[in-house]
Design a protein around this nucleic acid. Structure first.
Lengths: 342, 342
DNA sequence: ACCAGCTGTCGAATCGATTCGAAACATCGT
DNA sequence: ACGATGTTTCGAATCGATTCGACAGCTGGT
């Protein structure tokens, strides 16, 4: 009962139902009234032959593709699990609005894909992952007038649409949480140094929030960077405790380093949470896999994806609207990796 | 110098260059000769205004979209890092062939997206991730005549296009590796039981390969399943060693369980590799993060992605070609998690 | 009976490319 | 000078939808 030959277009449907092509179109879109009897007949035929309007033809006529672009970080660098989950969540959120998702890697050799997408009008809007404070892709999108939503914000925060996580506030509350428990000397394990240097917002704001809150509670505070890898986390903790043996708690925003942090602390004989506290801002899954389960602010990726798509859909619908943004926060989930210092 | 107004179409280019629309098209595609002078003039204009052919119009006229669909596992279940990397690698490989990638989740509520993609002729071909031995999506694609390549193979292996990893052979060589070292009692830690039950090829073939090689070397062998989570890996190892204290080595194809396996072994006082050996088939990254680095067959995701796209591109180019498939193998990387039994 | 106001339907134009057949032009041998 | 040949270029048809203006057929009020 379905696609025999596949050569079913709106004209074929019209012929079989004994109406004109425009009537079929209206019956489907509902943009003009069609009598109940005719509509029923048309829908019947459509169901029989399994017709679906050709997406390219529709896009050409309507001037929109019902597709959004998702620009992911370059493939070379491994995506972190958070980013992975985020991609899946974006696709799901878009699907709920009958939008499809076109994937585009960014960076170096992949500029062609980006240009095809933007200039070839393949998409109605774009979601840009992992933006930097000064971001060439954002600038490019702005100048071509394609609506876009950034995950993370650019330097000119007020003029754009973005969804971001309040790393400053979240890291600060982690610091206060440790301070409240009585810790006096703490450390931050941040994302890789090159992220910080290239103006990657979350890394910057994590650092700022850490320093601000530590100053506010007059704690002795050390900030360090760490590549996105378990082994690096191990080295990082070793170096840290060698240099600052008095540290009794760390805050981390580097989820990939967690397994290494756990390993190093065990090897150095610092039991968590009895002798040492660990907290931070990481994906829920990683927090739960830590041993013992990590008291941390869980990155709400599903929320972020949903809000990003919502914002983009809105912006696509009414291009004139003023910039809007969403700065998400998230309460700390109390699990069992923090306690008063020994 | 670029997109002012954006309303640049091929007609505008033709006017500015003083030629007809068809000449512009031919200059761009090279499908007919255009004099050097004219071509230069046209390219100059195109460069000046930053023109790119409208993808929808081109797709409509050409009858192909230059886009492939990538069907990923449902979002609910967390994608494993291997799958994540795979998505990125597919996008990169497609990009190299000037193909874009449209993402579609599969399963339950997402069928609409799948139907839009297939019946709406949004894509020229599809790559299907994580296929089952009997797979509804594969059947659907087959009946609509859209070229597709499966990652993993379906029950009717001979009739389709697919790329797969030789789990049977790889797990078997892991078993032989342990046997050669002198182990007499070993275990398999497989993917979740529901994967096995629903006919997920890799899980099935891992099990078969394990049993076959164990029988061939007459080893005492226990096979168990384990959810894709670190905590589950922990429980799994505990249960295993409680039931079979004589086991001196495990083979795993469950990368997500690795951190838990590591933790459980440490807690139970079995030092790796001195007292206990661990090996298996997992993503390189996970093997390297294991402690000590895992002697294992690394899943060659980049290779698999490249081959899948290559196969699909070929099939799209000449629809008549007979089914082809690629069964990849991979040598075991000797790191340091295996040794003779105590 | 006539006109106004709805409904429902149709035909034609449109979106922006590709592609085919034919026209225009140049080149060349005889 | 003339057809034969080959190179460039053009105009028109085509892909498969959407959308707008117009027309036909009813209904109802006067």
């Amino acid at each position: 009962m379905s696609c025999r030959g596949g050569r079913v277009n709106i004209g074929e449907i019209a012929r079989r139902a004994g109406v004109s092509r425009s009537t079929v179109s209206y019956a489907l879109s509902g943009k003009r009234a069609v009598s109940a009897a005719t509509r029923r007949r048309i829908l019947q035929v459509i169901d029989d032959v399994g017709y679906r309007p050709n997406a390219s033809a529709r896009a050409l006529a309507e001037g929109r593709t019902r597709t959004i672009g998702l620009v992911i970080p370059p493939a070379g660098r491994r995506l972190t699990p958070i980013q992975l989950g985020f991609v899946a969540d974006i696709v799901a959120a878009a699907g709920r609005r009958e939008l499809d998702v076109l994937l585009s890697p960014s960076g170096g050799e992949h500029d062609r894909s980006f240009e095809r997408m933007v200039r070839g009008r393949r998409v109605d809007g774009v979601i840009l992952m992992e933006v930097r404070l000064r971001d060439a892709r954002a600038a490019r999108l702005r100048e071509s007038g394609v609506p876009f939503v950034a995950i993370g914000h650019t330097a000119d925060a007020a003029t754009g649409y973005w969804v971001d996580l309040d790393y400053h506030g979240l890291v600060a509350s982690c610091v206060r949480h440790l301070a409240d428990l009585g810790h006096r000397e703490i450390a931050l394990i941040n994302r890789p140094r090159e992220f910080l240097d290239s103006g990657y917002g979350p890394a910057r704001r994590a650092l700022d929030g850490f320093n601000a809150a530590a100053a506010e509670r007059s704690l002795a505070a050390t900030a360090s960077c760490c590549p996105d890898e378990a082994t690096a986390g191990e080295t990082c903790v070793e170096d840290l405790l060698a240099a600052r043996p008095g540290v009794t708690g760390v805050v981390t925003v580097n989820e990939a380093a967690l397994p290494g942090i756990e390993r190093a602390l065990r090897r150095l004989g610092r039991a968590v949470p009895r002798q040492f506290s660990v907290t931070g801002v990481v994906g829920r899954h990683w927090a739960e896999e830590f041993h013992p389960p990590l008291t941390a602010a869980d990155v709400p990726i599903t929320d972020m994806a949903e809000r990003a798509v919502e914002l983009l859909a809105q912006r696509m619908a009414e291009p004139g609207t003023p910039p809007r943004h969403v700065l998400l926060s998230q309460p700390i989930s109390l699990r069992s990796s923090t306690a008063p210092p020994p």
